[in-house]
Amino acid sequence: MKLTINGEKLEATEGQTILEVAQENGIDIPNLCYSPELKPEGACRMCVVDIEGVADPVTACTTEVSAGMVVETETPSLKKMRKVLVELMLANHDVECLTCDKAGDCKLQDYAYRYSVKKVRFEGEKTEFKGIKDDNPFFIRDNRKCILCYKCVNLCKQVQGEASINLENRGFDTRVTTAFDLPLEEINCQFCGLCVNECPTGALMEKSALRKARNWELKKGSTICPYCGVGCELELNIDENDQIVKVTTNSDNVNRGQTCVKGKFGLDFVNSEERLTKPLIKEEGRFREASWEEALDKVADNFGRIRDEFGGDATAALSSAKCTNEENYLMQKFMRAVMGTNSVDHCARL
């Protein structure tokens, strides 16, 4: 089907929303509560657009396209209203961009810039603040910076299937919290960090990243998580000392922005001083460094000796989830064909 957005004639398929079609075609419609992984929530109202023949603006994230639709996304009146929205969010926000660790990677800040919010016209009371929640080793929750886009709540429920967090109170007093305000460690949170990845503001922040660097100083490197065979794609955020400050993911990855707790919060070993970098051989109760050739020879010799002396069934192999499928295949092939035993297993089965 054909439609027009900002004068551009575009192709779309039935069932797509205006926002999806716009994004596919490089048209940037502001959005705060939208995620391709979620049912559209329609909460932030930033994505409003005008449709020819429709009196009031509609939200692009919830409105499906129809043939011949003519859409405008940045009219003066839309800009004015988006500016009001940003001001309303800022009026109930702890605006400390100068020292905020999210600065530079914060959608609220971006939109404030885009719509030239210099001074908030509607200052007033703020939602009662119950303190920064620092109840787990991985991330903090700061309600003062929450703009109630509900992404965290919806991701945790719809994607992660945990529903660890939800809303309390209503209206102006609405807050994201856990059941009975319990610490995350005491409830069913998996610390997958999905909520932290997707929070558009500084309300959910990796502890490892606090006070480390401004976002624009970080180098980004894409890698595959070393922990298991699923192979989640990760983005490493590295500071000038080559330290990993935080690990993020994004929804274009094979893992669609999700990881488990290890990928998200367990990569700090990479920078560990205690990390082994060379093989060690134990002699008379003490380790000494060796070369890879020497170490491998030693292993091969001993495997051969045991097999010849006691038979293959005297050995067994347990492989690690950090290995790829191919490596696991090779492991069992080696045990069966070379060692002559069927005693193979994998840690994922434990």
């Binding site: 109202r45 969010m89 102006f172």
Partner: peptide, 12 residues
């Protein structure tokens, strides 16, 4: 409390 204009705007 779901959408920004109503939640924040009516208070202002």
């Amino acid at each position: 409390g779901k959408c920004t204009p109503c939640r924040e705007g009516t208070r202002r």
